[in-house]
Design a protein around this nucleic acid. Structure first.
Lengths: 187, 187
DNA sequence: AAGAAACTGATTTAATCAAATTAGTTTCCA
DNA sequence: TGGAAACTAATTTGATTAAATCAGTTTCTT
């Protein structure tokens, strides 16, 4: 059973993805068939709502991630592959490029997004390090791998490359993870 | 000996990189120690100047590229590696993200940039195809490799990732080409 | 022939202010 | 308790116009 809080957050994600950051509180209320009054009993203001929406999304990524990390049956390389596969599943929920526009208006939310985008890579970075120590992946610059991956995903969302080339998102993602993992694998 | 035309184009690149698309004709004239009058004897208007500047840059990429293609001593994979190395050398000359802002004001130049960015991949795409036919690289989606590479370079220029991580552009480029080439290499 | 500088019409930018929208609150009602 | 709708103060949007900038031309000079 979903809590009221979660219902509101889900609705917020929905209208956010439809209208970007200029969604209104009325939009959320209408989406829910709920009065604004009720929303305001749960969230103090719009800022808090968006802030919590961000955390809500990242938490779900983190959870899938933890599941991969915890799986003892996987090798380090398989874990890297697994995590790179779930990471963007979370990105799918929200159009983060929209969130970047908040820089001026909601600096607190903006820096929260950056913070979580950054810390979202913590486990992956650790895995890279472990892989290099174990010798299963080559000594590469972790920051570069990160940029490659993030930049590519960003393009998938922003431009219409996938539509134009008639490639599904999951196929594209699998291919990218595959190329990167093979590219960093020890010789 | 450089022609007047080339001198003007070089100066244009210079001021363009300093001030973006809002460089003025006076800027170019001052940079050259030349009167605007003289510039206008060579180029009909600003639009033509920028248009030719774009071609000028891409032509120099194409030239280095042809040199690699023509080198019979290289294997297909080495050629791919070589071409991916020179392609961005040309990007270094110009901040193409600036050019993308022209969409509305100079649609003719904008579409020229797109056209040449696109056709700049022609030889690389052919090489990918040849490599797959020869079996030296895996069957990958060429469009995805292209997105990965382009997106990554774009980030190198746009964000300050390289500065922040204290990596030189050429080291970063070499690493990216390396990862991609290893990532697509046949097993 | 080419630079320096002044000039003009067109475009860009900036400032201003009115109109519309919206966050958050309150009132009334089921 | 919670929805519907009205309300207010604040913000955002949009239109208008004045000021500044700039592309392209002309004049005068060496």
């Amino acid at each position: 059973m979903k809590t009221v809080r979660e219902e509101i957050l889900d609705a917020t994600i929905h209208v956010f993805n439809k209208k970007g950051m200029k969604f209104t509180m009325d939009d959320v209320a209408k989406e829910l068939g709920m009065s604004k009054k009720t929303i305001y009993t749960v969230f103090a203001d719009k800022q808090e709502l968006v802030y919590d929406m961000v955390d809500y999304c990242f938490d779900s990524i983190k959870e899938s991630e933890a599941r991969v990390m915890r799986n003892a049956g996987l090798t380090t390389l398989e874990k890297i592959q697994g995590i790179m596969g779930v990471l963007p599943d979370g990105y799918k929920d929200i159009d983060f490029s929209q969130l970047y526009i908040l820089k001026d208006k909601y600096p607190r939310i903006y820096s929260r997004v950056e913070e979580r985008l950054e810390s979202g890579w913590d486990s992956t970075m650790e895995l890279f390090q472990r892989g290099m120590d174990e010798g299963v992946i080559r000594r590469v610059d972790k920051a570069i791998v990160k940029v490659m991956f993030e930049a590519t995903l960003e393009q998938f969302f922003r431009r219409d490359v996938l539509v134009k080339n008639n490639i599904s998102y999951s196929d594209a993602l699998a291919e990218v993870v595959d190329i990167i993992c093979n590219g960093i694998k020890g010789a």
